[in-house]
Amino acid sequence: MIERITVTTGHGRNGEADGMERLELRMGDVVSIVGPTGSGKTTLINDIELFADGDTPSGRRVLIDGARPPAEYRHDPARHPIALITQHTTFLSDLPVGLFLSTHAKIRCTVASGAVDLVEESLAFANQLTGEPIEAHSRMTELSGGQTRALLIADAAIICSTPIVLLDEVENAGIHRTRAIELLRRYRKIFIFVTHDPRIALLSDYRVVMKNGRITAVLHTDEAERIFAVKVSRLDDAMSDLRDRLRHGMRLDGTELRGLA
């Protein structure tokens, strides 16, 4: 079982070194990566997923339990301990959803018999996050942006079932992200959320701040923020409620926000 991931110091776009000795992520940690658009958040989680070894633009290295990960991690998906939910909101694979998921399940799952159940379970999971359900016979390329993200999350949680999950901006594309996080957090894993969302950031144990391609700070969520997080959640629920009413063709009159003041 993996206990920790280490990211060693690399550098940003202009060559300035990351602002930390090393980043240590421990099993069970929930971490956010925050920073302006283009600041290198996706690049950082790609470094982790690819087990960077000084061979990516950032020059960072990634260690698993203090050592270079074995080559099979990268070359054998069945042993790859990381699931990455990318920012993509379209699939380019021209396969039906069912066939895609069962192929992926066969690769990721060492017990072949379980593959069928995994496909159904993944679809059921994904359909809790979307408005309109995804069908097994739909083509991957036909799915909407939200359906695509929902399927990626379900695939990562159920089919990949890895000890480490990286999620790139789950809040985008209109899925039920609170539900997604609730479902995901039932598992003990290292979760890394790239996010612009205060609610997700405050749910995390700490957040990595990025600017111009480099890590500038690591902020631990402090006591005051934890208390404030409750308010942020309430505000966020009210906003989701507004969005839902809008989606269902209802009129908005402000009653949704009453409990907030």
Binding site: T86, S93, T103, R108, L152, A156
Partner: peptide, 8 residues
């Protein structure tokens, strides 16, 4: 592409 598509 997504990681899942790469693997498939």
């Amino acid at each position: 592409v997504s990681q899942a598509e790469r693997e498939v």
